[in-house]
Design a protein around this nucleic acid. Sequence first.
DNA 1: TTATGTGAACCATTTCACAGCC
DNA 2: GGCTGTGAAATGGTTCACATAA
Lengths: 210, 210
Amino acid sequence: MRIAEPTIERIVQYHRLLKEFLESGRTVVSSKEIGDALSFKASQVRKDLSYFGEIGKRGVGYHVDRLYNHIDQILALPKECRIALAGVGRLGEALLRHKAFRDAKYSFRALFDIDPGKIGKSFRGIPCFDLADAPKIMKRERIEVLVLTVPAETAQKAVDMATAAGTVKGILNFSPATLVLPAGVLLCSVDISLELEKLLFYLKYRENQL
Amino acid sequence: MRIAEPTIERIVQYHRLLKEFLESGRTVVSSKEIGDALSFKASQVRKDLSYFGEIGKRGVGYHVDRLYNHIDQILALPKECRIALAGVGRLGEALLRHKAFRDAKYSFRALFDIDPGKIGKSFRGIPCFDLADAPKIMKRERIEVLVLTVPAETAQKAVDMATAAGTVKGILNFSPATLVLPAGVLLCSVDISLELEKLLFYLKYRENQL
DNA sequence: TTATGTGAACCATTTCACAGCC
DNA sequence: GGCTGTGAAATGGTTCACATAA
């Protein structure tokens, strides 16, 4: 059965919340309590959790420990995930140190840029290569995930170079470009300008409605 | 009439694309051409554009100049937007210089942090204050939008401090925390860890399906 | 009695299909 | 003839309501 994107977004949030509950020594939790903590409806929580089997106890709730481990299984990576980052600018460097990647399972193996001032240097101990060498390096390092923090103009070229070797399975894209990908490569985009413009549109729009 | 969030996300993308077309000297464009460029269906593009009035010409397409200006009106800010940023870490600094904010309409007026090593200093010419002084500064500077780049643990406190004066209308949140907001404050969240976990879940999930 | 699990109802969004205008 | 604008149909996602189990 297919799992919808909004569902998996919520699953990730349940995972976080349950980790907190687990650390605070809590043993049981109801769908209502989870929903209240994350601003979802209790029925939504129950439906999401039921996609992966019957895990709660009727009349009782969910056993925190059991539910956490269950979701952990769903989200856990089978093995180490080898990552490369293209575009060693401010945002790229911020991501190298970001909490999201601070897990033993994730490892940055290579950086790419087109700036001669950066090529050959290391950042946080990770070597920066010329983007032109990406096909060779991606293959050698068996990189599966590419983090894209290049300007929009360079984004497609970076994708083409990085996916040429065929090792890349997914891209986390921070550029505002529309990308053409080889078949079978998954894309997840974070478009900061778009989020800002969306927020400002709604602020303006709401004022006009009043 | 209410405009759905997916629609406004696409509108922002039409705006970008039309700017490119305008600069390249193109004069007319069809819904199919817009759709192909951004990976949307032509019917989707037409429906989106029709929400804001009849703007195309039947049998012809959309006049690039006219359509661009039309969307520009929809998205344009009525006036300067005064922004503050809480959490002057790597990500915060990256955002201060990010292209998304590089527009005469946006102006960062204040930064906030709890690190004594940062308080009193300036970053990119913008003064950093103690988060405890946020109520006073937010009011004085009449800040309408808050960009949140603090760790999850500090996020709620930063929101409480920054919204206390009642000037803040919207928050662009980069922390993975669930926030409680005063009534009437809009929230737009960018959760980097969540996006990464989502991508990796789908990679794993897809492999298991094969 | 309490809280889950789930089919059915509901609501939102996308896509279709074609009438209407250039 | 070609392409937009738009009701209607289809799809996708959320919420309800209640049977079920502890």
